[in-house]
Nucleic acid binder design. Structure first.
Length: 833
RNA sequence: GCGAGAGUGGCGGAAAUGGUAGACGCACUGGACUUAGGAUCCAGCGGUUUGUCCGUGGGGGUUCGACUCCCCCCUCUCGCACCA
């Protein structure tokens, strides 16, 4: 007994069961005879419950997956869990449990939530990164990278988040704050493991061009900026009285003659040597101490005043032979270039301010077009190109030429060399936290750093660990974990207790998804070759640099380890906007969170999906409106009633049934044109432009046309045929968006196969042709009248008909027609004077 | 400061290649059906001095014709930011 009222809860459960029982969404294995399509959404961190941002992200992905399936592609659409991470530890401490327990509990709850939304995932491919079956391969990659010198350990000033009690990679510090908790990050000297992403800087930059068509320009430019390539020179300035020299990186070696002093980062490695004999040592030390103690936010803030201290030492300008006092300056960054800057006050604003403050000489070496600079009272540095002056043999030449000549000059004298510098730093992957993949390394007092032998992998994260209440990792104090024997000498040794950054897991999960259960190797070559790269990747813009840069790097590094020949992981990228409520991002603290579960309970999954896709195009932010979602619900109810009302009278002939145009009534023709027109628009909008909102609008228009003409059309058998076809087309268009209701109505119309397995219908452009068309009449470009004319009317006829029009007559009275523009089938523009 | 994007009704948003501005939806108004309705259906819905003229942030320009193309300006959002 079928219900006549739309009951989303019941039908959604029903169809989810059918899809599952019949394994409708299981991807066919690598079937080389079928075109493949890999659509992937950024997998979630199992925080406890899904939020609207997930729903939006995954709804977009599901439309793409379902639509591609309808188009005959072999689709891979997997889902998994980015399951390592700090919140699990904090929650475990709070609830006195183990992070693993908390995490797996969350996963099973969130999996149900996703299933209730009817997403067409191939759940047989599900993976969780905290599972040893996953992270063991990551440990293997680490060993192989270590062997190749792409993973290394060094002591370095690193970013320390005092709240998370761990270090952060540079990418994870945003304006001096921790990306996760927004605490002010401080510098700390620690031994850490790094991945040599800088080896790939140039390739990561160059290959952005390959992504130009598939990735948003915004993301590409953000990555470009982050990599920060600049071309210049490395120049050495010998220190007076010492054997050392100060090395600088500069892009303005054309201003070398104007370098009057030297600025070093307070943490520069040469500093102890420079100040060893200085009588002012205490004062200098105090300065260094004060500056290094500042957190990054404070130190790099715009308001921070430039200040410095003289070291008492001088270095020699290799061009002029003059002495340049060496200063320490708070604005010089150790991380960038060489941590030392040749100061050219006349042509660099920072250097000028510094020079004025400490009374240092200013020498103009570039003359602007048309006027002279006055070194004694200039307040703004001149940093544009010009003509070299006061520059010895180079004087009188234009800046660009001087750049080349000075470069040659210094290279010949072995005082400097051309150099490309990148802002990108190596990726610090050590984390002083528990809930992550252990770094598979052993420290032996005899043999030093020894990698864990491959056959001893995985290094398991212990299940028995008690979480210290203060958030520190339990690993360093867990003897059963730490105490081990050296694989080389067999003596007592200690394990590394840091774990890997969780961004390492997400750097290769998309590849593991192609064969997630494979036991003897991380990947299955055939599956890799068939499925990769991901054809469409979908996720938030917040990963524009972080995850998306790391994943690109990993693909290149694993390529060099011989795993594949893949160059880039994601051929196309869609960055969806945020879900807002009352103009702000949803957050517990603002109290503006809309709970997906609650919405599904009230309206059903189809309505929630529909609203997420209809309210705005995917790239833009979506303003959640409790009122507007009612409209989506209303539409589905209207559709339901329409099928209930008409269904019994119609037989399942569509969609896009063949009809003989000559035998159709005008209304039938009109409906048919509307059907094929909507299909054309929806197909184009959904697939070529990912504009689901306008595709849905097209379906709504078709529903409106159906309702309008239904009485007249049911009177004739050809009319019923047209109605059935159009209704079937509506269901086909909506199927990827609101799959449950469409399946149900599809079967109620009498179709026997699942809509999920029904091909996307093809429109017939002949059906779009109409007998009569509306032609607008403009006078001087302004709309004045309209006329309905046969579609094939020729230009001359259109012209005369337009001129005869009564409204036109009134407007052109007493004026002379100078020109007549005709766009056949569209408009006539009458130009008068 | 540099880079990117965006300014359209009360609101979310439409208008491929320049060619009927405001599709579709929300809200609102009037009506119908009703014991009632926040259900449903019908009609209306940019402004206006209402058979009129004005309207896509502002000002210029190109064009028969500009939300769309060009120049200048304003505002907002995002990213980067002492990068040597």
């Amino acid at each position: 007994m079928q219900e006549s009222r739309y009951n989303p809860g019941r039908i959604e459960e029903k169809w989810q069961r059918i899809w599952q029982d019949q394994e409708v969404f299981r991807s066919t294995h690598e079937d080389e005879s079928l075109p493949k399509y890999y659509v992937l959404e950024m997998f979630p961190y199992p925080s406890g419950r899904i939020h609207m941002g997930h729903v939006r992200n995954y709804s977009i992905g599901d439309v793409v997956a379902r639509m591609k399936r309808m188009q005959g592609y072999n689709v891979l659409h997997p889902m998994g869990w980015d399951a390592f991470g700090l919140p699990a530890e904090n929650a475990a401490i709070k609830n006195n449990t183990h992070p693993a327990h908390w995490t797996y509990q969350n996963i099973s709850y969130m999996r149900q939530e996703l299933k209730r939304l009817g997403y067409s995932y191939d759940w047989s491919k599900e993976l969780a990164t905290c599972h040893p079956g996953y992270y063991q391969w990551e440990q293997l990659f680490f060993l192989q990278l270590y062997q190749k010198g792409l993973a290394y350990r060094k002591k370095a000033p690193v970013n320390w988040c005092p709240d998370c009690l761990t270090v952060l990679a540079n990418e994870q510090v945003e304006a001096g704050l921790c990306w996760r908790c927004e605490a002010a990050v401080v510098k700390k000297e620690l031994f850490q493991w790094f991945l040599r992403i800088t080896d790939y800087a140039e390739e990561l930059l160059q290959d952005l061009e390959k992504l130009a068509h598939g990735w948003p320009e915004r993301v590409i430019s953000m990555q470009k900026n982050w990599i920060g390539k600049s071309q210049g020179m490395e120049i050495e300035f010998p220190v007076n009285g010492l054997s050392s020299s100060v090395k600088v990186f500069t892009t303005r070696h054309d201003t070398l003659y104007g370098a009057t002093f030297m600025s070093l980062a307070p943490e520069h490695e040469l500093v102890p040597e420079l100040i060893r004999d200085s009588p002012e040592q205490d004062r200098i030390r105090e300065f260094i101490h004060r500056v290094s103690a500042q957190d990054q936010e404070e130190r790099t803030a715009e308001e921070t005043v430039k200040e410095g201290v003289f070291t008492g030492r001088y270095c020699i300008n290799p061009a002029t032979g003059e002495n340049m006092p060496i200063y320490l300056a708070n604005f010089v960054l150790l991380e960038y270039g060489t941590g030392a800057v040749m100061a050219v006050p006349a042509h660099d604003q920072r250097d000028l301010e510094f020079a004025r403050k400490y009374n240092l000489p200013v020498r103009v070496v570039v003359r602007p077009e048309g006027h002279d600079l006055s070194p004694d009272d200039m307040t703004a540095a001149f940093s544009e190109p010009g003509t070299a002056v006061n520059s010895g043999q180079f004087s009188g030449k234009p800046t660009a030429q001087v750049q080349e000549e000075i470069a040659d000059f210094l290279e010949n004298k072995n005082l400097g060399r051309r150099k490309t510098n990148y802002r990108l730093r190596d990726w610090n992957i050590s984390r002083q936290r528990f809930w992550g993949a252990p770094i598979p390394v052993i420290y032996c007092p005899q043999c030093g750093t020894v990698p864990v032998p491959r056959e001893e992998l995985p290094v398991l994260l212990p299940q028995e660990a008690d979480m210290p209440l203060d958030g520190r990792s339990p690993l360093p104090e867990l003897d059963s974990f730490v105490q081990t024997t050296c694989p080389e000498c067999g003596g007592n040794a200690r394990r590394e207790t840091d774990t890997m950054d969780t961004f390492v897991e997400s750097s290769w999960y998309f590849a593991r998804f192609t064969a997630p259960r494979r036991k003897d190797a991380p990947f299955e070559p055939r599956a890799i070759k068939y499925w990769l790269p991901v054809d469409q990747y979908i996720g938030g813009i917040e990963h524009a640099i972080l995850h998306l840069l790391y994943a690109r790097f990993f693909v290149k590094a694993l390529r060099d380890l011989g795993y594949w020949s893949l160059e880039e992981p994601f051929a196309n990228l869609l960055t969806q906007g945020m879900v807002l409520k009352d103009g702000a991002k949803m957050s517990k603290s603002k109290g503006n969170v809309v709970d997906p579960d609650e919405m599904i309970n009230r309206y059903g999954a189809d309505t929630v999906r529909l609203y997420c896709l209809f309210a705005s195009p995917p790239e833009k932010d979506l303003e959640w409106s409790d009122a507007a979602i009612e409209g989506s619900c209303r539409f589905l109810n209207r559709l339901w009633r329409l099928v209930e009302e008409l269904g019994p009278a119609l037989s399942p002939v569509g969609p896009c049934v063949d009809m003989n145009a000559a035998e159709l009534s005008p209304q039938e023709k009109e409906l048919r044109a509307a059907e094929h027109g909507a299909l054309r628009k929806a197909g184009r909008d959904m697939l070529e432009r990912f504009q689901f909102n306008t595709a849905i609008a097209a379906a709504m228009e078709l529903v409106n046309a159906l309702s309008q003409h239904k009485e007249v059309l049911t009177a004739r058998s050809s009319g019923k045929k047209a109605l059935s076809s159009a209704l079937s087309t509506v269901l086909s268009i909506m199927a990827p968006i609101t799959p449950h209701i469409c399946e149900e109505l599809w079967s109620r119309m009498g179709y026997k196969t699942s809509l999920a397995r029904t091909p996307w219908p093809e429109y017939d452009s002949r059906a779009l042709l109409q007998d009569e068309v509306l032609v607008v009449i403009q006078i001087n470009g302004k709309l004045r009248s309209k006329m309905s004319v046969p579609a094939d009317m020729d230009q001359e006829e259109l012209k005369s008909l337009a001129l005869e029009d009564a409204k036109v007559q009134k407007h052109i009275q007493g004026k002379s027609v100078t020109q007549l523009i005709v766009v056949p089938g569209k408009l006539v523009n009458i130009v008068v004077k």
